[in-house]
Computed example of a mutant assay.
Amino acid sequence: MSDRRSVLRIAAAATLAAMSLTLPAMAQETTGTPDDPRLVQPGMLTVGTSDPVYPPWMMNDSPESGEGFENALVYALAEQMGFERDQVQWVRMTFEQIIAPGDKPFDFAINQVSVTPARAEVVGFSQVYYQSDKAVIALPGSPVTGAESFADLREARWGAAIGTTDLAYLENVVGVDGVMVYDDQVGVFQAMQAGQIDATVAAIPTALFATAVQIPEASITAILPPDGGDEGHGLLFEQGSPLIPWVDAALSEVIASGTVEELVQTWLVADPDLPVISE
């Protein structure tokens, strides 16, 4: 793994150097600094995320607090890139707006966005910074309670948010027909509380928070295998963004320093005793 990270850092640095040769001389002096003219707002690092945001990814619906896995990661990354804490500004958007093709009002976004081949055709990504297994969230008495196979899981009424890998996972991996689709995760949880669906899937950290705070009457009933079409979570950029090599090189340093693993242990600890359904 260390060799791979070294290669990533060298490749990113080489790409950044090559791109800087195409910039005017004055711009080259500030390339790769907080005054980089390629930033949405030079002097600031503009970061997109959703509205609202949820623990443990970000606490108290406050990206600015730095309390939570993803916003703490952003501030560590910003420091590596040379930004002060007050030079980070947040842009709140819907998940669909974040992943849509086209111009972006941010330098990059962080919102548990899974790197997938389909998305990579219309937006840019950093390297993966975290990958989570899926968790089944179900109400008491749900047909998935005690399930031991995908066939058992297909007996339930499922729901998921539109455009998410959770929805694709239920349809393509578990093989669920007729998944109920909602605008966002909140809508999914509300549908569960209303008895419209029996279960949903989510990343383990999301599931832990949901069953502790949002829908405490539900519980995690099982862990599912990784999604082969989901490479993990990455920072999302406008397609072709010239900032990708710079940000990716800094992210490599943050990962290599052990900061990301420390944040995982602080915010994203899962229960190792949960049952696993593999097929």
Rank of each mutant, 00 (worst) to 15 (best):
S2P: 10
L8T: 09
I10A: 14
I10G: 02
A12S: 11
A13K: 08
A14V: 06
T15L: 13
L16I: 09
L16P: 00
A17Y: 01
A18Y: 07
A18G: 12
M19R: 13
S20G: 13
A27V: 09
A27S: 14
T30S: 15
L39I: 01
L39H: 01
M44T: 01
M44N: 10
D61Y: 03
G66F: 02
N71M: 00
L73V: 08
V74A: 02
Q80H: 04
F83L: 00
F83K: 02
W90R: 06
R92K: 08
M93P: 07
Q97P: 11
Q97Y: 07
I98A: 04
I98P: 09
N111C: 09
Q112D: 10
V115R: 13
A118Q: 12
R119D: 07
R119V: 05
G124R: 07
Q131E: 11
K134F: 15
A135S: 14
A135P: 14
I137W: 00
A138L: 04
L139R: 11
S142G: 13
V144A: 08
E148V: 14
D152C: 03
E155W: 07
A161R: 14
T164D: 12
L167W: 14
L167M: 14
L167V: 12
Y169S: 01
N172K: 10
V181A: 01
D183G: 13
D183V: 10
Q185I: 05
V186A: 12
A191H: 09
V201G: 02
A203G: 14
P205M: 09
T206D: 15
L208W: 04
T211K: 06
A212R: 15
P216S: 00
E217W: 00
E217S: 08
A218S: 04
I220V: 05
I220R: 11
I220F: 00
A222H: 05
I223S: 01
L224C: 04
P225V: 09
G228P: 05
G229H: 04
D230C: 08
H233L: 15
G234S: 12
F237E: 03
G240S: 06
S241K: 06
S241E: 01
P242E: 03
L243N: 00
P245R: 08
P245V: 06
W246C: 01
W246A: 05
V247A: 00
D248K: 10
S252L: 03
V254H: 09
T259F: 06
V264I: 14
W267Y: 15
W267S: 06
A270M: 02
P272G: 09
D273V: 14
V276M: 12
S278N: 14
S278L: 12
